[in-house]
Design a protein around this nucleic acid. Sequence first.
RNA 1: GCCGGGAUGGCGGAAUGGUAGACGCUACGGACUUAAAAUCCGUUGCCCGCAAGGGCGUGUGGGUUCGACUCCCAUUCCCGGCACCA
Length: 877
Amino acid sequence: MVTTDKYNPHELEPRWQKYWEQIGLLTATESQTGAKKAYILVMFPYPSGDLHMGHLKNYTMGDLLARFRSQQGYSVLHPFGWDAFGLPAENAALKGGVSPADWTFANIQQSKESLSLMGIRYDWSREVTTCLPDYYKWNQWIFLKMYERGLAYRKKSYVNWDPVEQSVLANEQVIDGRGWRSGALVEKRELEQWYLKITDYAERLLCDLDKLPRWPEKVKAMQRAWIGKSTGAEFGFQVKGHDTQIRVFSTRPDTIFGATFMVLAPEHELVAQITSPDQKAAVEAYVAATRMKSEVERQLEDREKTGVWTGAYALNPASGKEIPVWIADYVLSGYGTGAIMAVPGQDQRDWEFAEKFGLEIIRTVQPPPDFSGKAYLDDGPAINSGFLDGLHLEDAKQRIIAWMEEQGIGEGKVNYRLRDWLISRQRYWGTPIPMIHCDSCGIVPVPYEQLPVELPALRDLDEIRPKGKSPLAAHPEFYQCHCPQCDGKARRDTDTMDTFVDSSWYFLRYTDATNTSLPFDPKKASFWMPVDQYIGGVEHAILHLLYSRFFTKFLHDIGMVQAAEPFEGLFTQGMVQGWTDVGEVELLGSDHLRFKSPDLRARLEIPETLSLEEARKSGAELRVHQDGTTHFWKAATMSKSLGNGVMVGPFVKEQGADIARITILFAAPPENEMIWTDEGVQGAWRYLNRVYRMVAENLVELKAQGEYNPALLEVTDKGLYQKLHQTIKKVTEDIEALRFNTAIAALMELLNALGDYRKEQGVTPLYRHAVLCYLQLLAPFAPHLAEELWHEFHHSSVFGAPWPSLDEAALVADRFELVVQVSGKVRGKTTVSALASEEDIKRLARELPNVQQHIVGKEVVKEIYIPGKLLNIVVKI
RNA sequence: GCCGGGAUGGCGGAAUGGUAGACGCUACGGACUUAAAAUCCGUUGCCCGCAAGGGCGUGUGGGUUCGACUCCCAUUCCCGGCACCA
């Protein structure tokens, strides 16, 4: 009940949270009536404990959309869960002496409390926790299905080894040659590991990006680049004196006549075989040196080309020339065939190599006369190219590929940069790989009825400590087993799966989270999928989003779900920043400052000394603290380690959840980063307080009003009625387009208009009607306050009432403000009737005194009239 | 270097090719108050002017148009991603 004149969020908010719980608001049910469905999903988090406002931004947006769709009568699915396997739990266990499971569940509990304090509603009956056997059982199930179809396989190769994590990493998890989590330089190790054959889906993962108009262009571009499709040809060069070929891939087979040497990756399998005795020592030294180098070192060398001749020659099948075969680390073993034909005339890297080692350079494409560069990469007529001479790039390509196919030398080929996904991890806190190694039968899958293969309990937390071998290998009770085929003694695989497997299909599990016989019922999944709006951080643009698309396509192919893409709409929200005390500084002279302590300064990549001008430009502020010291403050992404997070619990208890929600949503467009400030909070408070008072201060009069009848519209009511419907339209469209900041601005405008109206007309039936619509429009943004005020007039939830319907006719005003321009400059304004004829309007416009001044004595060349808006009178100068 | 996205008041940001700066923050002035906070009212792009009004103004230079923040060409700078991928 509204009993005071004071908006008191911490009193009213818990009441409505309890109420929503009681009425089961946003509990998802598959519609039986043909109502539209809306699957609103936020990226599930790693359960890291206490949440700050930075964590809450995307959950707030998801909650808003879920409530909005629910008001519109959709069947809404708005679930939540926990990406609970992974390294932080292991690290915490080693540090704090708590088991990964206990640590994880304690964090989940704490995070849940923060979410409910913010009034964020999920259908908790569908909660998914990936570290529970009833979830990861289905990781194993999907893995076995992939294995059956040849999409999960074991391979020995050089893999990325993280020396800190003591585990292998997928290519996607190596950034700038360093482990994505540990930051350690990644080493190459030859190991036999499990892979998922995502490359089989490369083409579909690429093409289907075009079917996702509601994805950010940026994310699609990143995925396209990662998949890295290139079209060309693969063909062979005979090695002189050996009964073997070097296969190469090239996107420019048309330049083959200019191939004056070849280069193999140092790791190429033919290197040892073709190296001549007198070059053997040099080659072996180079190969060994390459192996010692990390990826980062390879990049740091500023691309200065290095290489060694193998002593071998190959035969250029087009020119017939004998060309030397070199090895060099600028050719990568993992791409294409690990060998290239070098065409220095048309490739900058080959040019540099040829220049450095004095190799022949032949141009096979005629550059334009003004061309002054080295290698020429663009189109032009072919030269020095036998039967290709005179042909342009595309024609030459087609011609040479046809020739290669005729001659049996090679064929057209498409290559992808995408590699198969290495999923084995030598860690404890993950899904055991459901495979058995039997001496007589080889690799045997665990039968479906024996799933899940459960993680054994730890005897001692120290077992988790990275040793380069899976901790499960120290658990005989885990790995000792019988072969499902011959019943002989066998050994389980002791590696666990990459935790990105867990997040690659969790959105499907939500559609049927308690199923015990399948990962999910295909009917239920097909009802809800695809996700209509997915919200999360752009940092998942490649890894998680690509893997999820791959899994969905696979599950689609085996008939588990109709959708072939998981996420119809994707939104990547901007981060929340908080003001951060970077550290104490001292002034150097009049215009520079220097940090006294290094801690946060280095982490935020701020130089130790900088000018005041640079500091100002970077958005920093100098603040004098109470003890007289000067500190450098700067906005930075909220995080636990920077200590700049506004914690949810304390904030909500002191200020209120609705205030936090409005602060987050109004400060900036949601895709931009926003800075959390006290002023922003103040503004949100003022706004909600005004809404509260709009109702509370006029409660008795409001309740005394009868129902509003739009047929009896008073002349004095037209303005407000129009504004109301403009706002209904604007707010509806803005929410659908995720423009929450402008939706709130429109609500503020309507609030101002309501205030003006009441001052003039008092509380009328229209006023009451508009106030009630206002509460409905406000409800997705500030649900507690809207529900509180709504209940003064109704006995059921505002979220159960149908979304206000738009009266299109109300949008058309009967008077409008005509803008009069003379030669494109605004010279006057006048209010005219919408029914006025064009002639009348032109006459009225010319009568305006200021317009007169600008047209008098001048010839009017023409007049342009935009009905309902503007008249431009163009005069001759 | 390549790809994606930007550049608008003191700040966050609004603007289907049609009044640039909505909405809010800050600041300033006023009311209420013993006082402060809160609240309410007003001003707030820059320049000239007592005013009416005028000039300038959306990174820069050009173009299209009656009219350009918006479209086209060129260019600078900023942010993000990728980068020896043949």
